[in-house]
Amino acid sequence: MDGSSNGKPDGRADGGAAVAPADPAQALADEWAEETPPPAGPVANLAASLVTTAIGVLGAVTAVGLGLGTPTQPGAGLWPLAISVAVVVLSLAQVVVGRRGGDGEKFSRYSWLSLVGLATLLGLVALLPVIGFEIPALLLSLIWMKFLGGESWRSAVLYSVLVVGVLYGVFVGALGTNVPHLF
């Protein structure tokens, strides 16, 4: 199903002068508006605003614990408290202002790809000190090219080996950095 194209029978691309609206700028804007991803909904706005509110509350609580002092002799917690309060106030305002949603983007089924990407990056971080960067980087590259990018096995393997080779040559060879490496 993923391979199906969105081809539609097409007459001619630029012969549309008869139907184009008078303002080319508006036409372009309309066209792009069609292509942009759908905005996130009210749930997303609520969730995001609640998360930031929580951050603000956490900050405020911790700040109070640090000692506020007085305006003349500010303690360590005065400034963080001020900002945390600002965060909470702004976030609560956002809950109201954005209650209809409309900012950001909806998560699509392709968003899973980003999650997998994140997981591979975390895996790289975990394995880096243990077995060096070459093998985790190769695996990451293979996964990204083959599974996330739809390349064939042949080209994924070829390019991955090439990429890791160049990285080795540049970071370990030319620049002489201390990246953990196995070979």
């Binding site: 990407g117 994140l118 990204w144």
Partner: peptide
């Protein structure tokens, strides 16, 4: 894009390590 993405990601990750020779920095980046 499928080729470019892992290249830039890996450059970022390895580059992040070289700041302070610290894996913590790489974790921060992620």
């Amino acid at each position: 894009a499928a080729i470019l993405a892992p290249v830039t990601a890996l450059i970022t990750m390895v580059g992040a390590y070289t700041i302070n020779n610290s894996v913590f920095d790489v974790l921060l980046v992620v």
